[in-house]
Amino acid sequence: MSKPRLATLWLDGCSGCHMSLLDLDERLLELATKADFVFSPLVDVKEFPRDVDIALVEGAIGTDEDREKILKVRERSRLLVAFGDCAVTGNVPAMRNPHGTCCVLARAYHETVTESPQTPTENLPRLAERVCPIHEVVAVDLVIPGCPPPADVIHEVLTELVAGRMPDPARLSRFGQ
């Protein structure tokens, strides 16, 4: 049997969930012998590949580009895992919703600026009017709560998934942990 193809992706999050994945330390190297990391911020692959078995997605949907990405990830992955509170609930990035995109942009690019205030748009994605969790855009197969989920939880979940079993992360972690 060939090794499961594992992908990790980072949308509107702080990278803390990915750092918690790195906190597997030597267990991460061991995992890399049982599964292939076919896409991740840690490897030099630029295009999300086809036939991914397990996709771990950190972060909420904050731009039109995030939306395109998650649709592609869904289409190309057998199992999509919402990885951490931002992906699961919107969490911190969604706190900007009550303020409205234009006030957020005004604060960043007009009110605090001393030279050429303007809203950057060239070659850049458009901010979503409302930041939302992943499940509002695509179907999610598994959620791992936590901000970030502890390394031990990630380890247990991935070990189970790589072995072809379905874990129950809700038993292991909780929101805001």
Partner: peptide, 29 residues
Amino acid sequence: VTQLRGFEKLCEGRPFYEMPSLMARICGI
């Protein structure tokens, strides 16, 4: 740099003592 998360705005109205825990979420590294 292709995203904006808006921390300078999204903290408004929150109590100051929440700031360290909230602002830590700017970056997991």
